[in-house]
């Protein structure tokens, strides 16, 4: 760890002269948006501290030491300490970023730093004082739409294709999606027409749903692989039902978002490229993850690297990222198909 940090510092010092100009521009940008940053820091601190406090209280109630003769004030101190540590970690990241910017630009963004710190402290205090809300760990199925029963029980993979959607709805439950709705409403600029406002909100909600659906598909792939490992299911019979409905939702959602973008005056060429890149990313990441899950292998880091690689290649040379994604997906399908003979 120390080595990595030292290497990062050395690398930073080597490239520092080149990054001076961009760092100065970022500093100017921070100065311009200092109040917005303060508000964001406050909101983040409210959410972080209130959630963390609730988690710590829950953990304390469920602790294996719950029956031990420990002073309640010691338990409270422990909760305060843990919440403080969590908040400090987040704040330390902001400080580190500002420190790097100071190193690179040679000037400290004092006003934004001070406002962010103030916003964070106020937000943390508010988050701590928020009354604990009743928190029930509902079953995930409560939030997912059930498939209509067909009366008789017939062999079918219909439920497998429904599963990622149900998982996405369970994640997109009201207590999570309300924050997204709030952010979407904040994103609507004052003075916009109702149609524009509605378009912005729909785009936010759709984009969030598509990201959550992708995450849900990957998780369901892992769960399904663990469940069906001892069956004679081949890779194609495993992956196709899990991916088909999810991908159909991705395609329809992306097309709707592109349509909204075009309606708002986005350049058609750029919209088309983004659509193609997103669908390619979804297809390749889903394929790689399902292939690795089927082979009982972890692919978390690989997925991030693949997605970053595809995006980077596409940025450098248009069209090559799509090709790279296709090759990566084919390679993984080939390996997974050889898994069970």
């Amino acid at each position: 760890m120390v080595g990595v940090v030292a290497a990062a510092v050395v690398a930073l010092m080597l490239v520092a002269p080149r990054l001076r100009e961009p760092a100065l521009r970022i500093n100017a940008l921070l100065d311009g948006y200092a109040l917005v940053l303060m508000a964001l820091a406050a909101i983040h601190a409210v959410l972080l501290v209130s959630r963390r406090k609730r988690q710590e209280q829950e953990a304390s109630r469920m602790s294996w030491l719950v029956a031990a003769p420990i002073d309640p004030s010691a338990r409270r101190r422990w909760i305060v300490l843990n919440v403080l540590l969590a908040a400090s970690r987040h704040f330390a990241i902001v400080l580190a970023v500002l420190g790097v910017l100071t190193l690179l630009s040679g000037s400290f963004a004092a006003i934004p730093a001070g406002l962010i710190a103030a916003g964070f402290c106020v937000g943390a205090l508010v988050g701590w004082c928020l009354p604990p809300r009743d928190y029930f760990q509902h079953e995930e199925s409560r939030y997912s739409r059930k498939l209509r029963s067909q009366g008789s029980i017939r062999p079918s993979d219909r439920a497998l294709s429904h599963w990622p959607i149900a998982q996405a709805f369970a994640r997109h439950r009201p207590e999570n999606s309300r924050y997204i709705l709030l952010a979407a409403l904040c994103a609507v600029q004052g003075g916009s027409s109702m149609l524009v406002g509605l378009s912005v909100v729909v785009t936010w909600l759709l984009a969030t749903y598509l990201v959550i659906l992708l995450q849900a598909t990957l998780r369901v792939g892992r769960d399904a692989a663990a469940w069906l490992q001892s069956t004679p299911l081949g890779f194609v019979q495993f992956a196709w039902p899990l991916a088909r409905r999810s991908f159909a939702h991705q395609a329809i959602g992306s097309l709707v978002m592109s349509g909204i973008g075009l309606g708002q005056g986005a350049p058609p060429e750029m919209t088309g490229q983004l659509l193609l890149l997103w669908l390619t990313l979804v297809a390749s990441v889903t394929t790689i993850s399902l292939a690795d899950s089927y082979r009982q292998q972890s692919s978390h880091l690989k997925l991030w690297l693949t997605a970053a690689g595809i995006a980077a290649v596409e940025w450098r040379q248009q069209g090559w990222g799509v090709l790279l994604a296709l090759l990566a997906a084919i390679w993984h399908v080939r390996i997974a198909m050889q898994e069970k003979t």
Binding site: S149, I153, D157, R158, A159, Q167, A170, S230, T231, P232
Partner: peptide
């Protein structure tokens, strides 16, 4: 092979689990 209870898919119904498992085994009916 009987999987352990915690490996069952929570978001599927019992009927769906039976249907999927029968499909994986290539059965014409349960």
């Amino acid at each position: 092979f009987a999987v352990s209870p915690e490996q069952l898919p929570g978001l599927l119904t019992g009927r769906q689990c039976l249907e999927v498992f029968a499909q994986t085994k290539g059965l014409a009916q349960i």
